[in-house]
Amino acid sequence: MDKAEFKIEFDRNYLPLCMYALRILKNKDETEDIVQQSFVSVWELLKTGKEIDNIKSYLYKSVHNRCIDRLRKLNTENTDSIEEISEYVAEDDIDTSERDAILWAAVENLPEKCREVFLLSKRDGLSHKEISEKLNISVKTIENHMTKAFTRLRDALQPKGRKVFFLPFL
């Protein structure tokens, strides 16, 4: 596998792997570090001429193991969190990470004000009235922002290529 092919795999799997690790570690810095280390080690392996049949599975397994090691090193008080983590990577967890990545990218791509309203509502739990007062915009505008945000997030999860045709009423 050459560098260009590896880049394709990287582009495809980087954010989902970050979401996967973030669910385990709940720390963005540790997550970034571990995912990058995993890609570095895979690339070094590929450069030696070794072939990896399923790079995606290999990467998930690598990230998974590094997360477990990191949790043990951090000596977390909540040892239950380590025990709850499966020793293998489940297909459902991969699907979840991919869905998380799509939504993360969709939130990243929201218009700035729209994103701000959305996060104030869903993350911080503010009511539309509270957001309206905080940002000094009308409640109607808040509702429009929220509608736009949800529409974009749901559209992002729709399978690509699906088109909706509107037939004019004759």
Partner: peptide, 16 residues
């Protein structure tokens, strides 16, 4: 997924 993303979202993180 939405709950997870909004809880942890930070702009400028995990830039490819």
């Amino acid at each position: 997924s939405m709950r997870f993303v909004v809880a942890h979202f930070e702009k400028g993180v995990f830039i490819r």
